[in-house]
């Protein structure tokens, strides 16, 4: 890889654009899937898979690898796009998303696709699994790190709040949660007349002091723009540096649901909508690829 000036993440930006288009195309081809969440998380996923995670795509079971859990499993296609771009499997395989017999199931199935550290999709479970991985890594004396990507809507699940205090109690500095705070969920609550939120529905945690909640449970909180690669990478480096410590880190990443496409940004209906042929063309135009 050629040397780049500090702060230049043009390569990541190009990968993220490509990843977003792969999401739109794969979901359109399958006729089902999610758009809003994969797009809000795409910059986080690209930063993780290309700059942060200690992984070996050609040796997915490498015992000393970082562990990564996509707790918001319905963003599977976003994860698959990032993994394909990183070399876990051919980008062409994304064409099998959701198809019978595919390794790329609607929600991540670790029994089918090497490189997945957990099966997720029923929301709220991933942080507990990551907690066990971090606990196990400590007991094994590994210096790897465990990362769990959560949705903000997902944090309505009670199990998330079972894991948060236990991770602090066991002093798991080697565990980092990243919250994709896209401010929306599938349907959620309507905005009141006098309200303005980032999207066209209420923010799942708009009225909750999320930072203070994590801090009250003994976590360290980093707040970043989840679409700013420099900030994402710096926060993750900060979190990893705390890996030998006893305080788990949460990165609250402010994102935009449906990020990257003018017609999907901030629109709740794009949570799990399928793009029409015209919309796929529009996506290609916006994300910088020639029409197929």
């Amino acid at each position: 890889m050629e040397a780049r000036p500090p702060g230049d993440h043009a390569d990541l930006e190009a990968l993220a654009r490509r990843g977003r288009l792969l999401v739109i195309e794969s979901v359109a081809r399958a006729g089902a899937g999610h758009i809003g969440g994969p797009l809000s998380a795409m910059d986080l996923l690209i930063a993780l898979f290309f700059r942060v995670l200690r992984i070996r795509p050609d040796e997915p079971g490498w015992p000393e690898r970082d562990r990564f859990v996509l707790s918001k499993g319905h963003s599977a296609i976003g994860l698959y796009a990032a993994m394909a771009l990183r070399g876990y499997f051919p980008v062409e395989e994304l064409a099998t998303f959701d198809a019978a017999g595919s390794r790329l199931q609607g929600h991540p199935d670790m029994t089918r696709l090497p490189g997945l550290d957990a099966s997720t999709g029923s929301l709220g479970q991933g942080l507990s699994v990551g907690l066990g991985m971090a606990m196990g890594a400590r007991r094994r004396g590994l210096d790897n790190h465990t990362w769990v990507l959560l949705g903000d809507g997902e944090m309505q699940e009670g199990q998330v709040w079972e894991a948060i205090p236990v991770a602090a109690k066991y002093g798991l500095g080697n565990l980092t949660a990243i919250v994709d705070r896209n401010g929306m969920q599938q349907y959620g609550w309507p905005l009141r007349l006098d309200e303005r939120h980032r999207g066209d529905r209420r923010d799942p945690f708009g009225d909750t002091a999320v930072r203070e909640a994590f801090e009250a449970f003994g976590w360290r909180v980093l707040e970043i723009d989840g679409h700013e690669f420099g900030a994402i990478i710096a926060a993750c480096e900060d979190a990893r540096a705390a890996g030998t410590g006893v305080v788990p880190t949460v990165i609250l990443a402010e994102t935009v649901k449906g990020r990257g496409l003018s017609f999907t940004e901030g629109a709740f209906e794009w949570h799990s909508r399928v793009a029409t042929a015209d919309e796929v063309e529009a996506a290609r135009a916006e994300l910088g690829e020639e029409p197929a």
Partner: peptide, 11 residues
């Protein structure tokens, strides 16, 4: 869930 994570680490 924690047990699943521990099991994945060989416990």
């Amino acid at each position: 869930g924690t047990a699943v994570g521990l099991a994945s680490m060989g416990f």
